[in-house]
Write a protein that binds this DNA or RNA. Structure first.
Ligand SMILES: [Mn+2]
Ligand SMILES: [Mn+2]
Ligand SMILES: [Zn+2]
Ligand SMILES: [Zn+2]
Lengths: 147, 147
DNA sequence: CATGCAAATGCAAACCGTTTGCATTCATAT
DNA sequence: ATATGAATGCAAACGGTTTGCATTTGCATG
C-alpha cells in the first residue's frame, strides 16, 4: 500500500499521523503472517525505529478500535495477534504441529446462522471459527494419511 | 451424577481420589453455566471445603488432560472456563450485552470440513466456533429487532 | 511562523490470571 | 502398618498487557 493511503486511513479515523502508526500499518499490510505486539516491536527496532512496547500496544489498540487492523485471538496462542484489515471475511486453519496459521476465505455459516436465530431466538451478529489439524508439510513429516 | 460414578471417572483415569477432585467434578457436573477456576474456588470455600487456588488450577488441568472436563477459552473472557465433559459436540452463543453464554448442539461443519480438506490439503481434526450477538432478553431491553 | 492544547509517547510500575518450587501431607499398593 | 509417589499449601514468580504520570509531539488557530 502506498504511504498516502496509509496516511489517509489514519487521518480519516480522526487520529494524529505519527511515524509509529504509519510504520505499524505498513508492516501489517506487507506481512503475510499474523504478528504479535512483540513481533512488531522487534521489527520496528530492526528498522531503526526506536519505540516503546507500550506505545506499540496503544497503537495497536487504536488501530483496532478504528477498524484499520484486526486483533486475532487464537486459542492456544498466549499473545494476541494482529493483521491488516482487508474487509474480507475469513477464518484460520491452525496446524497443531508447527503452529502455522493458514487463512480460508469462504464460510458456510450464513444459512446456518439464520437457522440458529429461528430456533433459539438469539440474534447473531458475528462468529469466529478456528479449524485445527495438520498442514500439508506436517502431514508428510508425521506420516499422517490425509483424507 | 452419583458419587460412585464420579469416583470411577477419577480412578479409571489413574488418578488418586481426593476430596477436591470429587467435589470439583460434582460442581461442574451440576452447574448449568461455565465456571472459572475462581468461581470454583469460591464455591468450594462456600461449601466449607477450604482449598488453595493453585490446587484448583492443578486439579482442573488434570481433569482436562484426562477428558473428564473441558477447558473453554472464550474470546473476550480473561479467565478460562470449565465445563463437565458430556461428550456432546457443541458450540456457544455469546451475548455481547450481558455476557451470558448459551450452548447449541448441532453443527453444520462436517461436510464443509471435507470440502476444505479437499481444497487446501490441510487435514482437519477439530474446530471451534463462537457466535456473537444478543440473547432474547437483551434484544428486548436494547430494542433490537431480531430477524 | 509562533502559540496553545489535546493527543501521543516513554518509562517504570502495576495488574492479574496462571504457574512453579519446595516442604509437607495424603492416598493407596503391598 | 509401611513405603512411595502423587497431591497439596504457600509464597513467589511469570508474562502478556495495562496504567499513571511527566514529557513531547501533531496540528489547529491566529
Ligand atoms: Mn465465517
Ligand atoms: Mn462444530
Ligand atoms: Zn504444520
Ligand atoms: Zn444478553
Amino acid at each position: 500500500m502506498e504511504k498516502k493511503s496509509i496516511i489517509s486511513k489514519i487521518t480519516e479515523a480522526g487520529l494524529k499521523k505519527t511515524k509509529y502508526r504509519v510504520n505499524i500499518i505498513d508492516l501489517l499490510e506487507k506481512s503475510n503472517t499474523l504478528l504479535s505486539a512483540q513481533d512488531i516491536h522487534t521489527q520496528l527496532i530492526k528498522n531503526k525505529t526506536k519505540v516503546n512496547l507500550s506505545t506499540v500496544y496503544r497503537t495497536l489498540d487504536k488501530l483496532t478500535e478504528n477498524g484499520i487492523i484486526n486483533k486475532v485471538d487464537i486459542e492456544q496462542e498466549k499473545q494476541s495477534l494482529y493483521e491488516y484489515n482487508r474487509d474480507e471475511h475469513h477464518h484460520f486453519l491452525i496446524c497443531k504441529n508447527c503452529n502455522k496459521i493458514e487463512t480460508i476465505y469462504n464460510c458456510p455459516l450464513h444459512d446456518y446462522e439464520q437457522e440458529i436465530m429461528k430456533d433459539s431466538g438469539f440474534y447473531i451478529t458475528g462468529h469466529k471459527i478456528e479449524f485445527y489439524g495438520y498442514c500439508k508439510e506436517c502431514q508428510k513429516s508425521l506420516n499422517i494419511s490425509s483424507l
